[in-house]
Design a protein around this nucleic acid. Structure first.
Lengths: 147, 147
DNA sequence: GCTTGCACCTCCAGTCGCTAGAGGTCCCAT
DNA sequence: ATGGGACCTCTAGCGACTGGAGGTGCAAGC
């Protein structure tokens, strides 16, 4: 009989918190493990590996649906890996878009911050800029703002 | 009597959706406007200005508590604007941190993606890299991962 | 004056990826 | 046998909105 791993063992081995591991299970990312007589989860090495896979993918910024797709892909070694490459490229594209946005933001912010000479709020360019309603507004809203 | 603005007018003028405007009101960012006889919100110019301020601040990446702080600050023109400057600087610092993280992520991703030659999944470096549990893991989890 | 149809109303639930807490049980080392 | 940490389930909460259901108001055209 193989020695089984507790949820704490998995947590220490991967750096993923126990609560998160349970959540992955509830979401169907991680198969339900066996249980001890008392009801504690008893994992096999395969769980550890799969959890590591999930964690790496998450660290690389893949969203949950993408992680699922990659997991499915990894389960079929004879398939073409074009999809994995496409997922990676689209992730890179998303990062580039985010970086462009942040760069623009940073420039605007530092421009505004430099203009503040530390006087009274009445003369502060930061407050003034924010209050200036002649600014054009961006397309979209929330996370996907395009300026 | 001044002509009043509907929520739709505010929305068109600022690019903030009506639902979001109502939400800002519920959160106390925007004061409750008057109402028409039929119960529709009737805004004054001051609401438009305040909403514009909120939107600009949000566009610059300020979180809601920071937006609240800036609004409070803007209401007291005699105060020192050092706080506004500090808020802007800390926002810039946050953006820089995010950019560093994204840069590292992008490098890792493109390294991994380049190694994929488009063969079968079995030989795909993308899948392989993700499955490789010898990778060290990062500190923290969720949004604040540090590698 | 009446109809039409869009804009508006409230309330509730969902998004994403976890995280935290309450209240209870199990397991292992001493 | 016992103590205390690790584990269990269940529920609610985070930020910053978004969307839908089901119903009402308002203004323009006839």
């Amino acid at each position: 009989m193989q020695k089984s791993l507790s949820i704490g063992d998995l947590s220490r081995a991967t750096g993923v918190k126990p609560t998160t591991i349970r959540w992955y299970e509830a979401e169907g990312l991680l198969p339900e493990p066996g249980r001890t007589a008392g009801g504690h989860r008893a994992y096999a090495a395969s769980h550890l590996q799969r959890l590591g896979f999930i964690r790496h993918a998450r660290e690389l910024g893949f969203a949950m649906p993408a992680v699922r797709a990659l997991l499915d892909l990894a389960a079929e070694p004879e398939q073409d890996c074009g999809k994995a490459h496409a997922a990676a490229m689209s992730q890179i594209e998303a990062i580039d878009a985010k970086m462009r946005q942040l760069t623009a933001l940073r420039a605007e912010l530092s421009r505004v911050a430099e203009a503040c000479q530390g006087g009274r709020v009445a003369e502060c360019r930061i407050i003034e800029t924010l209050a200036d309603h002649t600014h054009g507004h961006c397309l979209g809203s929330g996370h996907g703002v395009i300026c």
